[in-house]
Nucleic acid binder design. Sequence first.
DNA 1: GTAAACTAGTTGCTAGCGCAACTAATAATA
DNA 2: TATTATTAGTTGCGCTAGCAACTAGTTTAC
Lengths: 175, 175
Amino acid sequence: MQYWFACFVTFLIADADKTLTNMKQLKPSILNLERFLPYRISILSNRLSAIIAQTYKNKFALSITEWRIMAVLGEYAGSSAEEVSIKTQVEKSIVSRSISKLLNRHLVSRTVDANDRRRQNLTLTETGEDIYSQIVPVSYAYEDRLLACFSAQERVIFDGLVARLYRHAEKIDSE
Amino acid sequence: MQYWFACFVTFLIADADKTLTNMKQLKPSILNLERFLPYRISILSNRLSAIIAQTYKNKFALSITEWRIMAVLGEYAGSSAEEVSIKTQVEKSIVSRSISKLLNRHLVSRTVDANDRRRQNLTLTETGEDIYSQIVPVSYAYEDRLLACFSAQERVIFDGLVARLYRHAEKIDSE
DNA sequence: GTAAACTAGTTGCTAGCGCAACTAATAATA
DNA sequence: TATTATTAGTTGCGCTAGCAACTAGTTTAC
């Protein structure tokens, strides 16, 4: 057992005791919002989004949704709107409207698919690629700055727990 | 060092190695949305909210915002709109409009404060209390169901990491 | 080969969010 | 005490989200 693990675990035990003590003070007939997990995740998400939305808007005049679409196209050029919708988890009508804006700004181009004329293949234009390559490091920098409050081990733990909770919620959702 | 800690830590090390391996496969000039923390938190939050929003809407005809306001008033009767706004992290104009709806439905009542006639003290009505006491157990049940994918220890860890990240984001935000 | 079912993408409509401007009341300052 | 600044709450407005209906193209099944 390495030293950092011992430290980490000690910290966790202290934290656990504190939390359990707090929990006992609560009447079960009252719900304390600040301790309610979905609420906490929601305000965390809002705060993270607000910070990054500001940056994208100021520096690149893009909404988070628009950036997400570009992010998918930067990685998977030639995706359809449907595929973008799935990857970004953005509803298809919103994708459609966002793509219109990106087309107007010549950040994205589209061509009707030869084999399936319903389908339209989307690609970043040269300008789009250019902006994309500017945003990527900004995004990574933001992520790093956020994660500065975690140790490398904690990052991994957090990542794992988030992923597990997400998959679990998906399961609950599909029931 | 207790046994479960050893098991847990072993699991974490395995997970860390896997993640680090994956990370090395990434070109730094491309951003993979699915690995980007703010995105992951965002879709997690959306999913958690969507599930609970459905329940509140179906069973009680309340939006999440309306429920959050009631949750604050259930715990702190006589709060002002301002205080509700701070506690719920909901913008004051939205609080104002939501309160109008709750007043119309006679779930909340308000009285002008005697000492400060700008301020209005908000309280749940009897009907409001009644609905509140029905929602609380439903919310706790949902939270328990979500957290079923974590061990007691993991819950505490997750809680702590979420809290830390939130505080850290607050700090970043205020700079 | 044609009708029915399905799929891709767009558009109409409603509701909620959030900024900013506004009203009314109070507190601070000179 | 008069002027100014501050605070509580409401309202106007534009934007986005998301459901549902729609168009157009494709596949399935008889």
